[in-house]
Amino acid sequence: DERVNIFYALQQGEMMNILPLKDDAAHKWYSPGEDLSAFSGRDSLFAAKIFGWYVQELVEAQHTGNYAPAKEVIGMINTYQHAQAHQSLINEGRIRAELCYNRLNLFAHASKAYLMSGVVLLILLIFGILYPQQRKWKLAGYFFIALPVLVFLAHTAGIGMRWYISGQAPWSNAYESMIYVAWASALGGLLFIRRSPITLSLATILAGVILFVANLNSMDPEITPLVPVLQSYWLMIHVAVITASYGFFGISFLIGSLTIGTLAFSKRLQAL
């Protein structure tokens, strides 16, 4: 239902804020399907006609295979945006970074890598505990520790790219909060790795599950402006600390559950 509504809105020229209003105090951008009465003069004519012109050229290109006229219209829109918009809103570096960010899809790949490395590492560590005389299990476990570290670095790079693109701390909505909690979970595992390698494996599995949930269709990954309630320096302090604590709490829960399960299993073996 959501996809059908998005497709319909795009057909009506909505959801694409490509038309900046010159000298607007709020720097508002309009979609071609919106009420464009705020535009005047030549700007009004351009705003009303340009999208329809582009769609017409695009449909024609589907038959002829010549997309040059459609690209020319895109160039006109680009020129208009640079002429009318506040220049700080159009940063070529951020545009290139966002294209790269979308192409890499780091968080989806990190989810699979976290889960795979976490499960394998946990199995190897358990075998190392059960068979301490065989060093191969312990050595293989240490080898697989390197993979979560590499995935964590890629995860960190993804958060950094999102921060650079949006210009704000990337934990301001549901999707970003999930991404950040997963990062905090992986960080917690790395911080306590010297005390217990199993902590890293559990933290890695938790991070993978959180990223998997974040990438479901119910989560919107769109980079959006801050809502008014979060437009405060407390976003960097209060929200960051509280959101990160969920990751550490999740690790504590998994360690506690594993400990209780291990104790119960060992007592049952002793009873037998």
Score class of each variant (00 low, 15 high):
N66E: 11
M15C: 02
P32E: 10
L202A: 04
N215F: 10
A113T: 08
Y175D: 06
W137G: 10
T156L: 14
F127I: 07
S232L: 03
I50Q: 11
A47Q: 06
G261E: 07
Y114G: 06
R135Q: 09
F107I: 03
A48S: 14
G93T: 10
V119W: 07
N17G: 01
M178T: 02
L258V: 13
M15F: 03
Y246G: 00
F253N: 01
L104F: 05
G128N: 06
I145V: 15
Q84T: 02
F152A: 14
G160S: 10
G141T: 08
D24S: 06
L235V: 01
F46Q: 02
Y142K: 12
F39H: 10
D43I: 10
S88A: 15
N5L: 12
S201K: 10
K28N: 09
I50T: 13
C100Q: 13
K71P: 00
Y101Q: 03
L36W: 09
I210H: 08
S185A: 15
E60F: 00
F248N: 04
L272T: 03
A244D: 04
I242S: 01
E14C: 06
Y233F: 03
W183L: 04
Y54Q: 14
E2C: 05
F249T: 00
L19P: 02
S111Q: 08
A186G: 14
R3Q: 09
S111L: 06
V213C: 12
L216H: 12
L115K: 04
L153R: 05
E34H: 12
L36K: 07
Y30D: 07
T243S: 06
A108E: 09
A70F: 06
E176Q: 15
L200F: 04
K138Y: 05
L254G: 02
L150C: 14
A97D: 10
A157Q: 14
S266P: 00
H109R: 04
T262P: 00
R194H: 12
I193A: 07
P20R: 00
S245T: 08
W53V: 13
E34N: 12
L115G: 02
I205G: 03
Y164K: 14
L121C: 08
Y80F: 14
F51G: 12
V120R: 09
F51H: 15
P69D: 07
P32C: 13
N217A: 15
H86M: 03
Y114R: 09
I6P: 00
A174V: 05
I198L: 13
A154L: 13
I126H: 01
K49S: 14
F248I: 12
W171G: 01
Q134P: 03
A244E: 08
A146V: 15
R268A: 13
G33T: 06
V213S: 11
L153E: 08
A140T: 11
P148G: 12
P197H: 03
A140F: 00
I198M: 14
Y175A: 05
M76A: 11
A108S: 12
T259S: 09
I50D: 06
S201V: 01
I95Y: 01
L21N: 04
L202E: 05
N91F: 06
F144Q: 11
G118A: 05
I123W: 11
S166H: 00
G118D: 01
E72C: 01
Q270I: 13
M178W: 13
W183V: 00
I95A: 04
Q134W: 15
G160Y: 10
Q134I: 14
L104N: 01
A154W: 04
S232R: 07
L121H: 09
K71I: 11
